[in-house]
């Protein structure tokens, strides 16, 4: 887990496993505040208080296939290492909201990584879930969602080379435009 993109991919899996129909991923950068934040909210099954307390414990998981659950604890550690913070809110039946903050200039802030590939794979795999990605910088903002892609691309297979390259290029070009951090 070297990049923020990989963490986003990982946390989004949690949401899909919680049966979410909507996942919203927001990355906000502010040079002024020297802050980079990641917010992921979903409308999945949520967690009760007891589970929520345990969620960042690496030796707790809701899975039965293994005994550890490292996704959330690793992200929490990364945020705290990079002069930031981590918070998790959840309500059973309503959904979950995660927020991780990093000091933008901190040397331990994980690089963004290839977020375009990550988003493409998420869009491709979960076409029935409304996934929204929004990236905000001082120069502007870019957002893309499953419904927008569905509307533009209709019924074609997103696995096709042209479509794949098109989606990736769209994300890459727009993030470049707003000067998103690497």
């Amino acid at each position: 887990m070297r990049t923020l993109s990989e963490h986003i991919l990982d946390i989004a899996q949690n949401s899909t496993r919680a049966g979410a129909k909507m996942i919203e991923i927001i990355v906000e950068e502010s040079k002024k505040k020297d802050l980079c934040s990641l917010t992921i909210s979903d409308n999945g099954c949520g967690m009760d208080e007891e589970t929520l307390k345990q969620a960042t414990n690496p030796f707790f998981t809701s899975r039965t296939t293994r005994k550890v659950g490292l996704g959330l604890p690793l992200l929490k550690q990364k945020a705290e290492d990079a002069g930031g913070s981590f918070s998790l809110k959840s309500e059973p039946g309503k959904g979950t909201k995660l927020r991780a903050e990093f000091q933008l200039s901190n040397i331990d802030r994980p690089p963004m990584g290839d977020i375009w590939d990550t988003l493409y794979l998420l869009f491709l795999s979960y076409r029935d879930i409304q996934l929204v990605y929004r990236h905000v910088t001082a120069n502007g903002e870019f957002s893309i969602s499953t419904s927008e892609l569905n509307e533009a691309l209709g019924d074609v297979s997103w696995q096709e080379k042209e479509i794949r390259n098109g989606i990736i290029e769209l994300i890459k070009a727009n993030l470049g435009e707003i000067g998103a951090a690497k």
Binding site: L149, A152, D155, V156, S157, E160, E162, E169
Partner: peptide, 25 residues
């Protein structure tokens, strides 16, 4: 051409539509 907006993406799709497969249901 470069794809920079959803409109570009739609245009590209229309150009290649005849060559590519529909979504597998």
């Amino acid at each position: 051409t470069k794809i920079k907006s959803l409109a570009d993406l739609r245009k590209m799709k229309e150009e290649v539509q005849s060559k590519i497969k529909l979504r597998e249901n």
